[in-house]
Design a protein around this nucleic acid. Structure first.
Lengths: 264, 264
DNA sequence: ACTCTTTTTAATAAAATGTTAATAAGAGGT
DNA sequence: ACCTCTTATTAACATTTTATTAAAAAGAGT
């Protein structure tokens, strides 16, 4: 092997092309909370977590649904890549975006060796009810039974299902006919991440519009945590994070609620 | 563009080599807690967090210290890669290992575009006082001042320093002459991860030998959290996680302490 | 004016955590 | 054997946080 005197000399000779390298993509799990009127005769609205999927129009996995994603460019970071891809595929620009996990299983892509740097994004869906042609919001239902997680994703037209199993801190896909790649595992891990983080961070506010009632905020916590919370306890804990406005939400058939906004 | 009838046909023609790809490495921050006798005349021992570094023997960054790491192979996952590299460079086999973050800045490696999938590892240092020739344990001292984090790393022979600044959730290197690549940021993020996780997980026990006193365990929590804890409070909280043995630690010049072990 | 519904807060109970101080017990010296 | 030193261990109490129940508030619809 040649001996180099200094770094410049070494770098001038360096040829990266002699090494075989994996491809790298970014994939993004975009979560939001949808406001579906379930129980229309009583005028109740019930919130659902929803996930954004796009339909693949090329091989592999042609016509299957998948997370928005794509190959990174040589002149962009993975953060930049995920933002570019999201804007291109779904028209979504402003959002909360956080790196989730890098998936590197050998056969996760049938084309070639592909690593995926995954991201979790949170958006206020009311801002993005109009998204691109290819993308759809799917309401997410999870049925947890010990270590088995059964997922159902519903849009107006489609219903997708998959089953994960949790082994230590990893999710393994047990059943999946509808989603491309290892995207079931990415969704599972993404959901777990926001479940954990909603309790000790302020990410919930990324799912809310500027003004909201405490009842609406509580519903968002409830649907993500998957359990009912008691009003007074929730209000006490959340009170440090929000500030009252002088607006109220009226015309809802009962005592009007004060509108709040995120503090700081 | 050619129209394919099915996935097999598409895959047969697929040529990944026409795309330019980044290189991918794994880097591992191995933390442990060292038992340095500081205050020898009073026989007190004080614990320090320590980090494992290796000295680079080739360009780039020749003769600088860096985290153990290397390029991934085409037939291994990043998890497997990090284990292989750790065992090869440092002789460490059994440990707690968790993916930390994927770094993708454009110029983080002077050779070419390199993504690094970083890992945090925790080991009981008493098992690995004898590590490989190239590797050294460095005691870690952090001085936090608002958003500025000043790090000092000390081995018997060397003293390294660097300064990070925290901007939102990211660390930016402000000053660094001693460590290769962006490894200061990896160490900063790794330390933050274990600080957060020690409070709500059982990772602390990965730093302990099989049998330990509650005083020793408390010191580990204290050095990682960077603050003193009160004995009765600590004992109450930790009591669910440990079980008493019938052994005691004697010969230490005061009341002997009961040895505990990790429960479950 | 009355009923319905949800919002909002008051009041109380229970649990968790923080703090102080007393007791325990081996090592080492006298 | 007894005394002192040191840290281990726990008892007791204070404080804070969280959980729970129930009552009061207020607009919409009849």
């Amino acid at each position: 092997m040649k001996e180099y005197k200094n770094e410049q000399e070494f770098l001038k000779d360096y040829d990266a092309s002699i090494f075989e390298k994996p491809s790298v993509t970014t994939d993004i799990v975009v979560f939001s909370v949808s406001e579906s009127k379930e129980d229309n005769y009583r005028k109740l609205t019930s919130k659902k977590i929803s996930v954004l999927l796009v339909k693949r129009d090329t091989f592999p996995f042609k016509d299957k649904w998948c997370l928005p994603g794509g190959f990174i460019k040589m002149d962009e970071t993975t953060d930049e890549s995920s933002k570019r891809i999201l804007e291109h595929e779904t028209n979504i620009k402003e959002l909360y975006l956080e790196q989730l996990y890098t998936f590197s299983d050998l056969n996760r892509d049938p084309r070639t060796r592909v690593l995926s740097v995954s991201y979790v994004a949170l958006v206020d869906q009311s801002k993005y009810s109009e998204i691109s042609e290819k993308a759809r919001w799917f309401d997410l239902y999870v049925d947890i039974n010990e270590n088995t997680y059964s997922f159902t994703l519903c849009s107006k037209e489609d219903k997708l299902t998959f089953v994960l199993e949790k082994q230590e801190d990893k999710f393994i896909t047990i059943k999946n006919n509808d989603l491309a790649f290892d995207h079931p595992e990415v969704i599972g891990l993404g959901l777990q991440r926001i479940k954990n983080k909603i309790e000790y961070t302020d990410i919930a506010f990324s799912l809310m519009p500027k003004y909201f009632t405490l009842g609406e905020l509580q519903q968002v916590y409830e649907v993500i945590l998957g359990k009912k919370l008691l009003d007074p306890a929730f209000r006490r804990i959340i009170s440090h994070k929000v500030k009252k406005t002088n607006k109220v939400k009226t015309g809802v058939g009962h005592r009007p609620s004060v509108l709040y906004q995120f503090k700081k």
